[in-house]
Design a protein around this nucleic acid. Structure first.
Lengths: 242, 242
DNA sequence: CAGTGGTCTAGACCACCAC
DNA sequence: TGGTGGTCTAGACCACTGA
């Protein structure tokens, strides 16, 4: 039999399959935590062999977009606390233990975006962002002061919810259909100014880690720009390189 | 025909193949930059099908241990400046440009390891480390002050070379057969003490990024513990998360 | 027990590269 | 032109899961 259909696109078939699966995850066909069809079922759905579906799922698994469990099925990834902690939270206790910090929201409102927010969120024209300010605490001690900016277009009523949950990425997914798939972070060391010193209960001038994060949805759209000031006495920012 | 040989180990066959390829890279059968045998050749060498070799090479490619080039072959990865810059050097100019800093070595000698060095390099007993101190410069301005500690056992004459090249990982590979495959980094913000302030030409108390890196060879052996103090005015530490 | 993913094999054709 | 990796297919058996 023929080994392969000729490729219509320049993209290999398995990448087209991958894109169609991402599309299904983006448009809500399969919601976070739900099971996808089996590999042969996806193969007949897309008109390709199971091996090609498998290669697409291999890449999606490597990117943490999908989770496969032997004997059970393939599932749309969830942004549960564990996933957040190990993939999107690089701050770790000096003893190596990672804990989920509590949060105390100090403000939610609409603003004109700062230049950084405008660039990171790819905004143009006269749009506004919803900006959340919060302090994060471990054992009731403040360790992070951060502001989170999201575009009003994608999150129309985020400022009218009353309460902002601690795990805000789960809210992005469940209420606004925006599943955070990846993020980019830039870190600097800065001396605490008066406001930061007060928020974090340190002396002015204390060295703090300033982290600027841009988070992206499954389809690549930027959904959040976050700026965090972190105490690093007793904590560190941890990265594995290859 | 039979679909698969029964697995002797608990490990799947392709991981055994992967381990044997890593072994060949570790023991010098294939040196950095050299071409490996073709996929069918590796298959008959190890007595497995080409598909199984391919799966092993897929993983090695994902881990940047080998490089495949269509039409040419599969090659043992090299630690050239480009690889170093994009995989092991997270400091980037605020304009997004990455440049290779020059280095000025200020000291090379043997010491008893510090507790951090002892733990990271998994040393025991009464061994010593070779410790290199250097200042790294961009446009003749000091930006990083670092000490690099390596075990004397693996690097017996590193302190008698006279000169230490800027790209020290290429030296580890070519002279000592230790190819750095991955690393772990921990970052903190600290206030500059008097010595750091002098080295980096900043005022005492200035916030600096302190990065502690442990680097591992292909076989998982720790080969280097490095502590770096970095100015982050004009630079930032950059990470992508998934 | 039936259904799922995990592994392994076998072989076809294509795209790219060096000679 | 010949050799390489890149893609795609087809189908076998194994290991795990849950009813």
């Amino acid at each position: 039999m023929r080994a392969a259909e000729p490729q219509i696109d320049a993209n290999p078939l398995y990448r087209q399959v991958k894109a169609r699966i991402v599309q299904g995850l983006t448009d809500g066909t399969w919601k976070p935590g739900e099971m996808l069809p089996s590999e042969p079922a996806l193969g007949s759905l897309f008109g390709v062999s199971p091996g090609t579906v498998r290669k697409a799922l291999d890449e999606l698994t490597a990117e943490n977009i999908v989770v496969r469990r032997q004997g059970r099925g393939t599932f749309a990834a969830e942004l549960d606390d564990n996933r957040i902690l190990f993939h999107f939270f690089k701050l770790t206790g000096d003893d190596g233990v990672r804990r989920f910090p509590d949060s105390r929201v100090t403000g939610v409102d609409r603003f004109a975006p700062s230049p950084e927010e405008r660039a990171a969120l790819q905004l143009s024209g006269n749009v506004r962002v919803i900006r959340i300010a919060r302090i994060r605490l471990l054992d009731d001690a403040p360790v992070i002061a951060e502001t989170i900016a999201v575009p009003t277009r994608a999150f129309p009523d985020l400022d009218r919810l009353g309460t902002i949950p601690n795990n805000i990425y789960a809210l992005y997914a469940s209420r606004y259909g925006r599943t955070v798939a990846r993020a980019h972070e830039e870190a600097k060391a800065v001396n605490a100014d008066a406001a930061a010193a007060k928020d974090l209960n340190v002396k002015p001038g204390t060295a703090l880690l300033a982290v600027a994060r841009t988070a992206y949805a499954l389809n690549g759209e930027p959904v959040e720009y976050r700026h965090s000031l972190c105490r690093t006495d007793g904590f560190h920012y941890q990265v594995d390189l290859r």
